[in-house]
Lab assay of single mutants.
Amino acid sequence: HNLTITQGKLFFHYNPKLCLSEIHKMEEVSGTKGRQERNDIALKTNGDQASCENELLKFSYIRTSFDKILLRWEPYWPPDFRDLLGFMLFYKEAPYQNVTEFDGQDACGSNSWTVVDIDPPLRSNDPKSQNHPGWLMRGLKPWTQYAIFVKTLVTFSDERRTYGAKSDIIYVQTDATNPSVPLDPISVSNSSSQIILKWKPPSDPNGNITHYLVFWERQAEDSELFELDYCLKGLKLPSRTWSPPFESEDSQKHNQSEYEDSAGECCSCPKTDSQILKELEESSFRKTFEDYLHNVVFVPRKTSSGTGAEDPRPSRKRRSLGDVGNVTVAVPTVAAFPNTSSTSVPTSPEEHRPFEKVVNKESLVISGLRHFTGYRIELQACNQDTPEERCSVAAYVSARTMPEAKADDIVGPVTHEIFENNVVHLMWQEPKEPNGLIVLYEVSYRRYGDEELHLCVSRKHFALERGCRLRGLSPGNYSVRIRATSLAGNGSWTEPTYFYVTDYLDVPSNIA
């Protein structure tokens, strides 16, 4: 807008934040220059609390790290170098490059900038070799853009010569660093050979998330399962459950009422301010606690030095998902009996873990797994792929695949051998790939016309006998059925096997 004052003059007093240069501009645009008398524009009460600059400061050096910015700028000295009290560095987070010096300023003089007072450097006698002032900004957020400017702080001049310097606002972004852990990993099994893994992005990506790394490792069953005799009275049979499938998407929606109208769909109840505040506090606490764990609990591995020492970490090797089922080394339970199943799973520490690289999504279907087997899954978020990966501390989750139908069934015939004193040795093959492992066998036998009897055969007993022995049988026709019990439950009964026990007292003698 054009402003013209045809008559009258300007009068400025007691404006401590208004620089004289701005008042002189007002004289020019209003056409009143030359009308004012000496005392109409006070030299001592206008701009006496402001830094009124008329020179431009330029930054000469900028260096960044993930949490620091090192700045240096060209030296500046007023005509009387004693008038320079120091520099004021202003900075704040700036997602967009549209910041002005006066953003967030209120009537009390406060604003949204963080201000650092910096002492002037030592003055050199040689004007050509003056030290460049600077400042190291610490405690910054990774991968965050900051708006920065600097200006001088000078003393009051009796001659009211307006001098000083100020830089333009520059924008500097800190470097990326390792992201925080992925949030809320959930693993479920939808079949006997697959596990579905879902997660949420890290709360602090500290860069642009480029991919996720998912490692999985087959877990050995508890050692007590191999040692305890679950045929003993009072000892509860062990059981394991597989990871249940995901709930429906509708039930997972946030901010939804727990109660549904019987007449149909209901609208979600909005969260109160107290609920939102509580969630923010919980989120802040979780982030602080995660940072504490990362800094205190997890110790970084030592990389190899120039002395030739090897990095103890196993090298990563990509495998196809079809090879995942046989990740671990199978060892027989008892070496003397080769027909026992290889369900003991000690994992070799030198073995390469299978892994998958996930790009542009937060889910993965891990296939080719062994049925009813526990897996430990390790999830890392990465925001750099080359020249070397920059990934987060791992988040861990466990899951067990679903049982395989008929995996616990005894394959092959049940054979028998009759000894003296009416002892019958029953023999059968253990299931080759049971659900988890076989903890015991149930032997059901009966003599024709009598009630059915049951015998429990422990895992250890089966390994020693290759089956079991029935003792003290009365003469007669017998039928026997056997079924295995694994961590997933009972298998199917075998087809009945028949044998006849004679009275050993009636056996004919070869003595003449």
Results as ranks from 00 to 15, higher is better:
Asp204Ser: 15
Pro205Val: 02
Thr210Ile: 15
Leu213His: 07
Asp222Lys: 12
Glu227Cys: 10
Leu228Glu: 15
Asp229His: 05
Cys231Tyr: 04
Lys233Ser: 11
Leu237His: 02
Trp242Lys: 05
Phe246Ser: 10
Glu247Ala: 10
Glu247Ser: 12
Ser248His: 03
Ser248Ala: 10
Ser251Val: 10
Ser251Thr: 10
Ser251Phe: 11
Gln252Met: 03
Asn255Phe: 02
Ser257Lys: 07
Glu260Leu: 10
Glu260Ile: 12
Asp261Ala: 12
Asp261Lys: 08
Cys267Pro: 07
Cys269Phe: 12
Thr272Asn: 11
Asp273Cys: 04
Asp273Gln: 13
Ser274Met: 03
Ile276Leu: 06
Ile276Glu: 11
Glu282Lys: 04
Ser283Lys: 01
Arg286Gly: 03
Glu290Gln: 14
Asp291Lys: 05
Tyr292Cys: 01
Val296Gly: 12
Val297Trp: 10
Arg301Val: 07
Lys302Ser: 11
Lys302Ile: 09
Thr303Phe: 08
Thr303Met: 10
Ser305Thr: 13
Thr307Gln: 07
Asp311Gln: 07
Pro314Val: 04
Arg316Met: 10
Arg318Ala: 10
Ser320Leu: 11
Ser320Met: 06
Leu321Val: 10
Asp323Leu: 07
Val329Met: 12
Pro332Phe: 15
Pro332Gln: 13
Ala335Pro: 12
Thr340Ser: 12
Ser342Asn: 06
Ser342Asp: 06
Ser344Thr: 12
Val345Tyr: 12
Glu350Val: 13
Glu351Ala: 06
Arg353Thr: 04
Pro354Asp: 15
Phe355Tyr: 09
Glu356His: 11
Val358Trp: 09
Glu362Arg: 12
Gly368Tyr: 04
His371Asp: 01
His371Asn: 03
Gly374Ile: 10
Gly374Leu: 09
Arg376Glu: 04
Gln384Trp: 15
Asp385Pro: 05
Pro387Arg: 07
Glu388Gln: 13
Glu389Met: 15
Arg390Cys: 12
Ser392Asp: 02
Ala394Gln: 11
Ala395Val: 09
Ser398Gln: 14
Ala399His: 13
Ala399Val: 11
Ala399Leu: 12
Thr401Ile: 03
Ala405Asp: 11
Ala407Tyr: 06
Asp408Trp: 00
Ile410Gln: 03
Ile410Arg: 02
Pro413Thr: 10
Val414Cys: 03
Ile418Gln: 07
Asn422Gln: 10
His425Tyr: 11
His425Asp: 04
His425Val: 13
Pro431Arg: 01
Lys432Gln: 07
Glu433Ile: 15
Pro434Trp: 01
Asn435Ile: 00
Leu437Val: 07
Leu440Asp: 05
Val443Arg: 01
Tyr445Pro: 01
Tyr448Gly: 00
Glu451Met: 14
Leu453Ile: 01
Cys456Pro: 04
Cys456Met: 02
Lys460Met: 11
His461Trp: 12
Ala463Asp: 13
Ala463Glu: 07
Arg466Leu: 08
Arg469Phe: 15
Leu470Gln: 01
Gly472Ile: 08
Gly472Pro: 06
Ser474Thr: 09
Asn477Phe: 05
Ser479Phe: 03
Ile482Trp: 00
Ser486Thr: 11
Leu487Thr: 07
Ala488Val: 11
Ala488Ser: 07
Asn490Tyr: 15
Ser492Trp: 00
Trp493Glu: 02
Thr494Asp: 00
Tyr500Asp: 12
Val501Ile: 08
Tyr504Met: 04
Pro508Ser: 04
Asn510Ser: 08
Asn510Arg: 15
